[in-house]
């Protein structure tokens, strides 16, 4: 999250050595989850690029066309974007207005950060429910040129909400410092 404060000024985390004893176990699980999601994102991103480029090659060089190129590349795109949103939370990519927050004391800043995470988690829970209903509703419909349910577009939103929820709850519980890594 954007207002993630630097390690030095953050409120001291709970527990003896900083974190509650259960944190390492949770961390292992969440990291495994993140890795699976990352692999899917990388594959979907590569497939999307490949699909769009192949369509150009097919059309221009082979004078033919891949019937499902449009919908399949959009499907990969949707999966890339929604699956990457939770990683954006982890790596503090989603931007916000920090004008007022900057003037708070580190302790209050951290408190506000956790509060904002709780609100964001509530939002994600609501989106999860919405995406669940939407997925069920859509399941009977097929993709335009493939015999696959069109519900899988909504599955990306579903995963996004659930995965984001986990990260936001962890932030709300343990503060802004749990992931030290940066994206670049």
């Amino acid at each position: 999250m954007t207002q993630g404060v630097s390690a030095a000024e953050a409120a001291p985390p709970p527990g003896d050595n900083g974190w509650p004893p259960i944190w390492p176990a949770i961390r292992r699980w969440v990291e495994a989850l993140d890795r699976v999601s990352m692999v899917v994102i990388v594959l979907a991103m590569a497939a999307m690029t490949l699909m769009v480029s192949l369509q150009v090659f097919w059309r221009y060089v082979l004078s033919s066309s891949i019937d499902s190129a449009d919908e399949v590349s959009r499907l990969f795109f949707v999966w890339v974007i929604f699956l990457a949103i939770p990683h954006g939370i982890k790596y503090a990519v989603h931007v916000g207005i920090d004008l007022l927050v900057m003037n708070l004391s580190p302790r209050n800043k951290e408190r506000l950060f956790r509060l904002v995470c709780v609100a964001s988690a509530v939002l994600m829970a609501a989106i999860f429910w919405a995406a669940w209903v939407a997925t069920l509703d859509k399941w009977q419909e097929l993709m335009p040129t493939l015999p696959i349910t069109a519900g899988i577009y909504y599955v990306a939103v579903l995963i996004c909400a659930a995965h984001s929820f986990i990260h936001l709850v962890l932030h709300a519980w343990l503060g802004s410092r749990i992931w030290e890594g940066r994206l670049s």
Binding site: R59, S63, S64, S65, S68, D70
Partner: peptide
């Protein structure tokens, strides 16, 4: 005999 293209 055309070359149909699916495009958004």
């Amino acid at each position: 005999g055309a070359n149909p293209v699916a495009m958004d």
